[in-house]
């Protein structure tokens, strides 16, 4: 078990080192996410309360879109030189391969959300930092869920010609509960109510946020275990 974790860590570190050298995925994903945020500012009516209500949705749509792009690209890298085959043939458990991939992709999605969240906070004057630790927990759990399910299917779709369209077709219906839970948790943390002077001050709804955080945790755990079980039989032809 311990060896699986260290091996997974090595694979994750390998991926992240490649990424840190080229910075291709992180730059393009982050730029794409930033563009999305800019587009939102034109797409939504510029009314303070409306925009405030839409902020959680913006954050999670950005994560969904840039996440799928990042996952697709990360696995393309393994396909280009057919290194995925080498990875699968390597004398390590295939679980370690999957786990390592999931970790590196979690890091990528997380990095992008950590770029986009401040941008959303900046452009839409959203109090995203008031409950920063809780919000970070929500985003980490969400990124992990996207990365786990995304890695399983991106790895299986590796040889498929239309993988770029099929990945979102598969991922989004399966990830809807995650997006809803993430949006609800974020919205609960961003809840604001007027104080005596009628000024909106943040008034987080902690029980609701906690409920959705638990939901996210169980969701991630269930799909992580499921992926451990079936990753191998899915990627082997």
């Amino acid at each position: 078990m311990a060896s699986i974790v260290t091996q997974a860590g090595r694979i994750a570190w390998k991926d992240l080192r490649i990424e840190l050298r080229s910075r291709e995925i992180i730059y393009t994903m982050a730029f794409f996410g930033a563009l999305l945020v800019v587009i939102y500012s034109f797409a939504f009516p510029a009314k303070a309360d409306l925009v405030r209500a839409a902020v959680p949705g913006m954050l999670w749509v950005t994560m969904a879109f840039s996440g799928t792009i990042g996952i697709g690209r990360a696995f393309d890298r393994e396909r280009e030189n057919d290194t995925m085959r080498a990875l699968l043939l390597a004398p390590i458990p295939r679980l370690a391969v999957f786990f390592g991939k999931a970790i590196s992709i979690t890091a990528l999605v997380l990095a992008v959300s950590l770029v986009c969240a401040p941008l959303i906070a900046l452009f839409f004057n959203a109090p995203l930092f008031e409950e920063a630790p809780m919000l970070l927990l929500v985003i980490v759990l969400g990124s992990a869920g996207i990365a786990v399910i995304g890695s399983v299917f991106a790895a299986t779709l590796l040889k498929v010609r239309s993988r770029d369209v099929l990945l979102p077709v598969i991922l989004y219906p399966l990830l809807v509960p995650l997006f809803v839970a993430g949006t609800n948790a974020t919205a609960a943390l961003l809840t604001a109510s007027p104080n005596i002077d009628g000024v909106l001050v943040s008034d987080p709804n902690f029980p609701a946020a906690w409920y959705w955080i638990q939901f996210l945790g169980f969701y991630d755990l269930a799909f992580l275990v499921l992926s451990f079980w079936i990753f191998e039989s899915l990627v082997i032809e």
Partner: peptide
């Protein structure tokens, strides 16, 4: 999904 359609689809059904 071409040749790997059955595997990918099976994974989707299970998930």
């Amino acid at each position: 999904a071409g040749a790997s359609a059955d595997r990918v689809a099976a994974g989707m059904a299970i998930f």
